[in-house]
Structure formats: structure tokens, C-alpha cells
């Protein structure tokens, strides 16, 4: 698993030090010139240029087996979609390679969003999705609220599994 952002290596090293992501390889792409631009995942308009939220499954032959680009910062695909795309490739399991940043010393930045915030953040999001979905008679709107609620529930469940809850 590879995580790409416009953060530099020191900031990514700092994030890796805080978040339990032992098999995530961090790739720094400041300016978006290396990965993000060529993948159509760079948004030059937001915050001076950052990644669009996305997930891509690349098959061993280099083809793109799955691609999801979020409509906004909170729009992410689901684990079920991702695992479905991976399982459809029919590959043997491999030992996950070690992750981490490409280099750089952790910069000591603590981050505005820390691991201890995650379950609280998504529980709050879930309740908001329930409340807002219930305010509308519009089916399309309610479907969006439901999708957001399910995303929150999946994230909370994954976090609980990771932490043995």
C-alpha cells in the first residue's frame, strides 16, 4: 500500500511516527509533478495544490483494476470495494512489505488530526449523517447521507479491530 501526498518527506516521517501504518509506504510528491498530476489526482485550486482523495488498485501488469476519486475530502471508497477489486485479481497472498517514509527525519509536527481523534471524529460524523439524512425527503440526498454513515461505520469498525476493541 502506497500513500501519496504533497507533504515533504520530513512531514510524512512525522506522520508515520504517530499513525499505526507499518505496511504503508509513504511517497512525497510536493507540487504533484511526479504522481498526482500524471494520475489526474492533483487539485491545484485547494490549499495551494494538494491531492484529490483517491484510491487506485494497480494489477501486477500495471493496469488499473480499480479507481475511485472522491468528490470532496470526506468522500472515500469502502474497504469492501477495495478488497473486492483485489480479490478479483486472483493473486496469491504475499508478505506485506515494510512501509514507512522514503526518508527524512520526523519533523516533530504533531498534526491537527491525531490517532486518538479518529474514533471520536467518525462517531460524530456518523451521527451528523444520520441527523442530516433524516431531514430530507429527497431520495438522492438520503442516499448520500446513508453512504456517508456507512463509510463512518466501516472506519470505526476497522479502527476497533485494529485496536482489539
Amino acid at each position: 500500500m502506497i500513500a501519496v501526498s504533497t507533504d515533504d518527506e520530513a512531514r510524512q516521517a512525522g506522520m508515520f511516527a504517530r499513525w499505526p501504518t507499518p505496511h504503508v509506504r509513504y511517497v512525497a510528491d510536493p507540487g504533484g509533478d511526479t504522481y498526482l498530476g500524471s494520475l489526474g489526482l492533483f487539485d491545484p485550486e485547494e490549499r495551494g495544490g494538494i491531492a484529490r482523495p483517491a484510491l487506485i488498485v494497480v494489477a501486477p501488469d500495471g493496469s488499473v483494476a480499480y479507481r475511485y476519486v472522491g468528490r470532496d475530502f470526506a468522500d472515500r471508497t469502502t474497504d469492501a470495494e477495495m478488497f473486492g477489486a483485489l480479490e478479483a485479481l486472483g493473486l496469491d497472498a504475499i508478505e506485506p512489505p515494510a512501509g514507512g517514509p522514503a526518508g527524512g527525519e520526523a519533523d516533530g509536527h504533531r498534526g491537527a488530526f491525531r490517532p486518538e481523534h479518529l474514533p471520536v471524529y467518525f462517531r460524530g460524523n456518523r451521527m451528523a449523517a444520520v441527523a442530516i439524512g433524516g431531514r430530507s425527503e429527497d431520495r438522492g440526498f438520503r442516499a448520500i447521507a446513508r453512504e456517508h454513515r456507512l463509510m463512518c461505520e466501516a472506519t470505526i469498525a476497522a479502527w476497533d479491530r485494529l485496536n482489539g476493541a
Binding site: A3, P53, V58, P97
Partner: peptide, 30 residues
């Protein structure tokens, strides 16, 4: 996808090992 290039070694290394790659983007550690 990008062609063979040292810049893309994280992807290519996993593919050479017979694995699929999940590439995700995130908005930065603010």
C-alpha cells in the same frame, strides 16, 4: 500508469514481487 522510472520504484517494486498495489492519496498531515 507511469513507465519504468526510478521515481516509481515503490510501485514497481511491489509489482515485481507479484503483488498488486493499492495507491491512495491523502490531503496532507495538517
Amino acid at each position: 500508469m507511469p513507465n519504468d522510472d526510478a521515481l516509481y520504484e515503490p510501485i514497481l517494486g511491489l509489482r515485481r514481487g507479484g503483488g498488486a498495489v493499492v495507491l491512495l492519496t491523502y490531503r496532507g498531515d495538517w
